[in-house]
């Protein structure tokens, strides 16, 4: 474990917590893409499928973190699609998730390290996570604005994988550890946030709200 991965995971946890708090406190999921949250839940379930297959006692923080990620993302989807369904902005959350899931699944079958079920599910999860934020960014471009709290959520979510890139550089240098699939997908994922990062740093940090030229 290195400092980059530690802060990456903390940033990821923070993102999940910020979103849950936003929805729970404001009792509304306006401005939040339900599709992105569904895709993240699918990512966690397919990536941590080993938890379900051979459930071993919660003997380390990693297992606890995996369970937190899965339960928090499923609970977030429950809040969006059931509890606060009336506030779900379905009209603007209109990016076709199939256009992300099918290519990720296809690519996972073509480019993977081992052609077996668990490995392909893991690879699918990595590819899907890289593009899972697109419906959320699409929604913001459609509504033309993002609530400040949602911007903080996006910043934490984007920072997590950016920190993981630093973690991979560190591990390559000190542990000669390399996972090309995760690295390439992580770089693509982080690039998708660049536009938002620019807006966040130039606007939200100065207390302004993000308003896109609609």
């Amino acid at each position: 474990m290195n400092i980059f991965r530690l802060f990456g995971d903390l940033s990821h946890l923070a993102a999940i917590a910020i979103l849950l708090l936003k929805i729970w406190k404001t009792r509304s999921c306006a401005g939040v893409s339900g599709k992105t949250q569904l895709l993240f839940a699918v990512c966690f379930i397919t990536r941590y499928i080993d938890l379900f297959l051979h459930f071993v006692s919660l003997y380390n923080t990693e297992k606890v973190m995996k369970l937190i990620y899965i339960s928090a993302s499923v609970f977030t989807c429950y809040l969006i699609f059931f509890k606060f369904k009336a506030t779900y902005d379905g009209n603007h959350d209109s990016m076709r998730a199939e256009f992300l899931i099918v290519p990720a699944a296809g690519l996972a079958c073509l480019i993977n390290t081992k052609f077996d079920a668990i490995e392909i599910l893991w690879t699918f999860s990595i590819y899907l996570e890289a593009v899972a934020i697109l419906p959320q960014l699409f929604l913001i471009s459609k509504t033309g604005e993002a609530e400040t709290i949602t911007s903080h959520y996006l910043f934490a979510q984007g920072s997590y994988r950016a920190l993981y890139i630093l973690n991979w550089i560190y591990r390559y240098h000190y542990e000669s550890h390399v996972d090309t699939i995760a690295i390439v997908a992580g770089v693509v994922q982080t690039i998708l946030y660049c536009d938002f990062f620019y807006l966040y740093i130039t606007k939200v940090v100065k207390g302004q709200k993000i308003v896109l030229p609609a």
Binding site: R5, D9, H12, E62, M65, K66, Y69, T113, W122, Y164, N167, R171, Y172, S176, H177, V178, D179, A182
Partner: peptide, 10 residues
């Protein structure tokens, strides 16, 4: 040569 990573990351 760098070895392929074990799945030890979240």
């Amino acid at each position: 040569a760098p070895k392929v990573a074990p799945k030890d990351e979240l």
